[in-house]
Amino acid sequence: MTSDRFLGLAVLIVALAFIASAFQIESSFLSDPVGPKTFPIGIGFVAALSAVYLIVKPDADPDWPPLSAFLALGLAAVVLIIYALLLKPLGFIIPTALAASILSYQISPRLMTAAMAGTGLSFGLFAIFKYALDLGLVAFPL
């Protein structure tokens, strides 16, 4: 019940913000009858309507994982964000080995196997991408 109400509330806020920013869209002097505002405003309206329906009539709650699992998911997301930022400056091999090891450890918590899986994936994938698919990847920073 509560989860769906939260979802509904979040969608409602986003939808209203979306409608508000859609009203700010500049139209050029050469506009067609509909213009660039109408369709986005309509989308926001439908979304807001559905959100209100969801707040009034929510479904049963899903099985949320315990807090520890949420922390693990947050960590995974942070790892992926850092990976995205480091992929270019540090080359492919090192960030990939680290990120893949951490993800592997999070799925099955055994330190050695995770480190080996991560390192193996990093080198294996690099070989495939570089030599089989001919992508312009950089292994290490120059």
Binding site: L80, A99, A100, L103, A114, A117, L121, L125
Partner: peptide, 22 residues
């Protein structure tokens, strides 16, 4: 624990090769 990290890394490389932007 090998498959999913592998899929993630392939996804990253695939999307990165589209535009090269973080």
């Amino acid at each position: 624990w090998v498959l999913l990290p592998g899929v993630t890394m392939i996804s990253f490389v695939g999307i990165y090769s589209l535009s090269g932007s973080y």
